[in-house]
């Protein structure tokens, strides 16, 4: 991992650790932590989406479905089968990964518009299943009484505990993804994005890599879904519909989908926008999302991190010995 990324990681970890005290000093304590827990959960989902879409260049409009598969796996296994939540969590990841593999093998042979439509169709089908399989999911009226998480026998209570758990997980996932990117695998993914035919001719099994990164993104989405389940303790298919897939895409785009830092930044920002300020005018919500997405796609396709005037940049910039190329 290059020095720049290490520095940002360090700063991020410190800021995150200090954040709870910061908001306490300002006053409104618990509410901002609550929003941050959601932001962290969505970050886990969006790290995977950023790898898939920003780096490997494969669009997916099914991330909400994988998020939902993780969420319902945790919900159903703990409520109806009395599983330990910590055991249900990896189960959900495996299940989502398996489904992603089954769908991904044929779907990722498609490109561009066709891939987008295929993942879109798949996402809608999964949403219909959540609605219809009332016996398992509770259908539209939802799945209730989902147990919370406990660590070492102590139940996790209050936002602070959740905040540290979720963001700790985000940091671990972030390190994993950064390692991946600055390696043979990451280079292969970027190569597939930039010049697929040359990547294939240089010995990269492009089909296999696309499916693998799709599976990874699904597993991360499912992990986010499991946390979501145990945090809100209530599930309803509305949280996993097409609009959520588009929200995830928007979060990644706002920050900049060709950078994991962009994914984190955009996710936190848009979660605050969604939870804090859009609540005021609920009827505009979709309209505002559409406008932001369109504006970003047209005028700032590489997201906020591509703005050159971010003041901290100078400090973070490494001496010019780095051999990592510019990210697209």
């Amino acid at each position: 991992m290059p020095v720049t990324d290490r520095r940002i990681l360090l700063v991020l970890a410190l800021v995150l650790a200090a954040f709870p005290w910061g908001v306490r000093a300002v006053g409104a304590v618990s509410h901002y932590l609550d929003v941050m827990v959601f932001a962290g959960i969505f970050c886990i989902v969006n790290l995977g989406l950023s790898l898939l879409m920003g780096f490997a260049g494969q669009i997916s409009l099914a991330q909400a479905a994988f998020f939902g598969i993780g969420a319902y796996s945790s919900g159903i296994l703990t409520v109806q089968f009395a599983w330990n939540p910590w055991a249900a969590m990896p189960m959900g990841m495996v299940l989502a990964g398996l489904v992603a593999w089954l769908v991904g093998v044929p779907a990722l042979r498609l490109k561009g518009h066709y891939l987008a439509m295929a993942t879109l169709g798949f996402g809608v089908i999964v949403h219909i299943v959540f609605n219809e399989e009332v016996r398992w999911t509770g259908g539209p009226s939802g799945l209730v009484d989902i147990p919370g998480l406990s660590v070492a026998g102590t139940p996790l209570r209050g936002e602070i505990a959740w905040y540290y758990l979720v963001w700790g997980t985000v940091l671990v996932a972030l390190v994993f993804c950064l390692n991946l990117l600055h390696s043979r695998v990451g280079r292969a993914l970027r190569a597939i994005h930039q010049e697929e035919k040359a990547a294939e001719a240089m010995g990269i099994p492009t089909a296999r890599y696309k499916v693998q990164v799709f599976v990874l993104s699904a597993a991360l989405a499912a992990l986010g879904g499991s946390f979501y389940t145990h945090y809100v303790a209530f599930l309803n298919p509305g949280s996993f519909d097409l609009m959520w897939s588009i929200r995830f895409m928007l979060m990644v785009m706002v920050g900049g989908m060709q950078s994991l830092w962009g994914a984190v930044l955009g996710t936190v920002l848009m979660t605050f926008v969604g939870n804090e300020w859009l609540q005021v005018f609920a009827d505009y919500e979709v309209l505002v999302y559409g406008s932001i997405l369109l504006g970003m796609a047209l005028f700032l396709p590489d997201g906020l991190v591509s703005l050159k005037s971010i003041p901290v940049r100078g400090w973070l910039r490494t001496p010019r010995s780095s051999t990592e190329g510019t990210q697209r």
Partner: peptide
């Protein structure tokens, strides 16, 4: 406006426009 955009951007742009229309209708 997006004449030179990549396919990925074009997809996102038409999706964004569809959300915009949907949002306007909801409004």
């Amino acid at each position: 406006q997006a004449r030179n955009a990549s396919v990925l951007s074009l997809i996102i742009i038409t999706i964004a426009f569809s959300i915009l229309l949907k949002g306007s209708a909801m409004f």
